[in-house]
C-alpha cells in the first residue's frame, strides 16, 4: 500500500487562485464542517471554549506580505493550504502501517484510519504541513479531496465536488483532473502560469497555485488633457460639446 503507484489514471486536485482569494476562511470552516461528520473520526477541538482552543483542520489560510523586489508597496496575499496530493508523496512511503496510500485510479492521497497508529511520521515527511494528528482520536487527518463527495451518488451531480470548492465565495478554488489537458484546471494552469509549491522538495504536487497578477501599475500612466481651466472655459466647452451631441 505505501509504495506509490508508478502513475495514476487521473490526477485529481485543486487549483488555488492567489489573485482571487480574499482570505475569508470559508473553505477552512466548510471543510471542517463536512469532514467532522463524514470521512473517519471527527475533527476534534480541544479546550474548545478555554484558554488554548486547538482543533484539527484539513485546510488553513495563511496571510503573507510580499515586498516587491522592484520597489513599491508591500502586497498582501491570502494563502490557503491543504494537501497537494503529490505525485511523489513522501508521506505515503514513510508510513509503516500502510494506512497512508495514494490511489491508482485518481491519485488522491488518503489515510485509512483503521490502520493508522498515529505515529506522526507522515506528517513529518510532508513539507507542506498538510497532515495533522487529531488529538482526541490519535489518528492522522488530512484532506481527502472530499473523496466522499466527488463520487457520491447521493449528491446531485453539480455538488460532486469538494466542499471547499463548492463553498468558496470568490471562486478562488477549482477542482478537476490535471491528467486531462483540456480540463478547466489544466487550462487555468497553462493560462495563468500555475506553479508548484517548494519544487525543491521533489514531491511533484498535483495541486497548483495561480500567482497574483501584477499590481499597482496606475501611477505614471498619464493624465487627462484639460479642455478648460476655469468655470467660464468649462461652460464654453459645455456649449460646444452639447452642440455636438
Amino acid at each position: 500500500m505505501t509504495s506509490l503507484p508508478r502513475s495514476t489514471e487521473k490526477k485529481l486536485g485543486l487549483v488555488i487562485d492567489l489573485d482571487t482569494c480574499v482570505g475569508c476562511h470559508a473553505c477552512v470552516v466548510n471543510c471542517k464542517e463536512w469532514n467532522t461528520s463524514n470521512y473517519g473520526a471527527p475533527l476534534s477541538d480541544m479546550d474548545a471554549y478555554g484558554a488554548a482552543p486547538e482543533g484539527s483542520f484539513l485546510n488553513r489560510v495563511h496571510a503573507y506580505e510580499v515586498t516587491p523586489d522592484t520597489g513599491g508597496c508591500a502586497q498582501t496575499v491570502h494563502f490557503p493550504k491543504s494537501c497537494l496530493h503529490c505525485e511523489d508523496a513522501p508521506c505515503v512511503t514513510v508510513c509503516p502501517t500502510g494506512a497512508s496510500y495514494k490511489r491508482v485510479e485518481d491519485g488522491i492521497v488518503l489515510v485509512n484510519e483503521q490502520d493508522c497508529m498515529g505515529c506522526g511520521l507522515c506528517a513529518w515527511a510532508c513539507p507542506y504541513g498538510a497532515r495533522e494528528l487529531d488529538a482526541l482520536a490519535g489518528i492522522m487527518k488530512k484532506c481527502t479531496l472530499c473523496v466522499d463527495r466527488i463520487y457520491n451518488d447521493n449528491l446531485p451531480k453539480e455538488d460532486q465536488i469538494p466542499a471547499c470548492v463548492r463553498t468558496c465565495p470568490a471562486g478562488a478554488r477549482h477542482f478537476g483532473d490535471f491528467a486531462d489537458p483540456d480540463s478547466t484546471v489544466s487550462r487555468l494552469v497553462a493560462e495563468r502560469e500555475g506553479i508548484d509549491l517548494m519544487p525543491e522538495m521533489s514531491t511533484r504536487p498535483v495541486n497548483k497555485y495561480l500567482p497574483p497578477r501584477e499590481k499597482d501599475r496606475l501611477s505614471a500612466s498619464g493624465a487627462l488633457s484639460a479642455q478648460s481651466e476655469d468655470p467660464k472655459g468649462f461652460l464654453a466647452w459645455l456649449d460646444k460639446a452639447l452642440e455636438a451631441l
Partner: peptide, 24 residues
C-alpha cells in the same frame, strides 16, 4: 519558494492561519 511568491519579492508572514497553536 514555499509560497511561490518569490517571483514578486520577499515574503513575510502577516497573520498565521489560526491564533493559537496547532499540531504542526
Amino acid at each position: 519558494s514555499a509560497t511561490g511568491l518569490g517571483r514578486i519579492g520577499s515574503v513575510r508572514q502577516l497573520e498565521p492561519p489560526h491564533s493559537g497553536q496547532n499540531y504542526l
